[in-house]
Write a protein that binds this DNA or RNA. Structure first.
Length: 410
DNA sequence: CGTCCACAGGAATGACGGGCGG
DNA sequence: CCGCCCGTCATTCCTGTGGACG
């Protein structure tokens, strides 16, 4: 039994301490506010584009570009939810389905998702993609609706799956009799058209919208609006608000990031029992967010990705090559009794770690001495220790300790 | 100026566990 | 229960290549 006073203190503080938050849900980025400052014109534009469905006409396909946190998803959801309400009022048969392509992952699951929203049950595996598509088309045509498909983060899908799904969807109206489909594609990558078949691209972007990043003062307004709902009066300092806006503006005007900062800053302040959220809490929050991001990423790596990272760690040089990593990795594997992957495979693992920002990999040519990747650790060495084992344990780890394997199994 | 290193990274293929329809 | 198809991870085989060296 521990000392009950320790917890008493914590709970006491939580219940009776100063409450900074009124409702922290408001600061989550999936929260949809009923007002989207600085996006009025985009809302109007998108509204105009989809309005025809209220008169039972198919609306144009729409393509929306913009970096993360510029309000693309929020505006789309906002407009569509209002459209849905209006459609009910007018008795128009309109339905929409929102799919996040990055989360949903594969064509199969996307079609399964679309099918579900026209009331079809699709097993989450077992059928061919073509079969699911046919069922979706048949199911949709039976219902006689104007169906709006929102494909969020569609760039993620196209980059690793190609544009087959989009091609099918842009052509689906040719084989539908009673229903019609409109597409809204949302992309974070402004150069998406380079990856697309020109025919697909042209039919997909009958209308195009671009979301510019927010600047610092716009972010400030957004945060201000939200903070009125999420924080109790007087518990958020002007300075904190400004720093949040400035930090997020520096990072391509990402409102999502700004909201995260504000929320975490509030949590930090609350934990410290502060009366008011200050600038320092925001800075602390910034460090926390990054720290958590990396720790989460590290913990969720597969065994071999961890081993690759450890190999880089052990080499302990400012920059290493693929071959060097492979040698060390080879040694670690045999000492751990773990199966060995090929160098080809290791190369793609390194690339994955690069994308995650844990490593930095750059192809360089060393002329006579070949062509390889220069790889650097992108995170503090101390963090690797923190996650993979404490202090000198790592040294032993190469000797093959049990602790290491069990650490990986969870 | 060609060679040739030490890989990069694409394509095809296979093993595997999950899950269906019949 | 079988046969089929799914996505994922991994292997095998392969062609491509920037630039220092000779």
């Amino acid at each position: 039994m521990g000392n009950p006073n320790i917890l008493d203190d914590v709970f006491e503080n939580f219940v009776n301490g100063v409450k900074l938050f009124k409702d922290r849900e408001v600061l989550r980025h999936d929260y949809l506010p009923d007002k989207l400052p600085h996006r009025e014109s985009q809302i109007r534009l998108l509204g105009c584009a989809v309005a025809p469905v209220l008169k039972d006409a198919r609306c144009s396909n729409i393509f929306i570009y913009g970096k993360t946190g510029t309000g693309k998803t929020a505006v789309t959801k906002y407009v569509l939810s209002h459209l849905e309400a209006k459609a009910k009022e007018y008795g128009a048969s309109v339905r929409f389905c929102y799919v996040n392509c990055r989360m949903t992952g594969t064509e199969y699951r996307i079609f399964a998702n679309l099918s579900q929203s026209v009331g079809l049950m699709i097993p989450f595996t077992g059928l061919s993609v073509g079969e699911v598509f046919d069922r979706f088309r048949a199911g949709l045509d039976a219902t006689k609706t104007l169906f709006i498909v929102v494909l969020d983060e569609v760039d993620a899908l196209i980059k690793d799956r190609g544009d087959g799904l989009l091609y099918e969807l842009t052509r689906i109206n040719e084989t539908l009799h009673k229903s019609r489909v409109s597409l809204i594609g949302i992309s974070n990558d402004l150069r998406l058209k380079e990856f697309l078949d020109p025919r697909v691209f042209s039919s997909l972007s009958e209308e195009e919208m671009i979301f510019r990043p927010y600047d610092a003062s716009e972010l400030r307004n957004i945060l201000h609006e939200r903070s009125k709902l999420s924080f109790n009066e007087g518990s958020l300092s002007e300075a904190a608000l400004n720093v949040c806006s400035a930090l997020a503006a520096a990072e391509h005007g990402d409102a999502r990031r700004a909201l995260d900062l504000l929320r975490v800053a509030g949590e930090v302040a609350e934990r410290q029992g502060a009366q008011i959220v200050t600038e320092d809490h925001v800075k602390e929050a910034e460090r926390n967010i990054e720290h958590n991001r990396v720790v989460e990423a590290l913990k969720n790596l597969t065994l071999h990705s961890k081993l690759v990272l450890l190999s880089v760690y052990h080499l302990n040089k400012s920059s290493v090559t693929t071959g060097e990593i492979y040698d060390v990795y080879d040694k670690i594997c045999s000492e751990l009794g773990a199966g060995l992957l090929t160098q080809r495979r290791l190369g793609t693992l390194v690339n994955e770690l690069d994308v995650m920002g844990l490593l930095n990999a750059k192809v360089v040519s060393m002329g006579r001495y070949g062509r390889t990747k220069k790889i650097r650790l992108e995170i503090p060495r101390t963090l690797i220790k923190e996650v993979f084992g404490s202090d000198d344990r790592i040294g032993l780890l190469v000797g093959g300790t049990q602790t290491f394997l069990s650490r990986n199994s969870s």
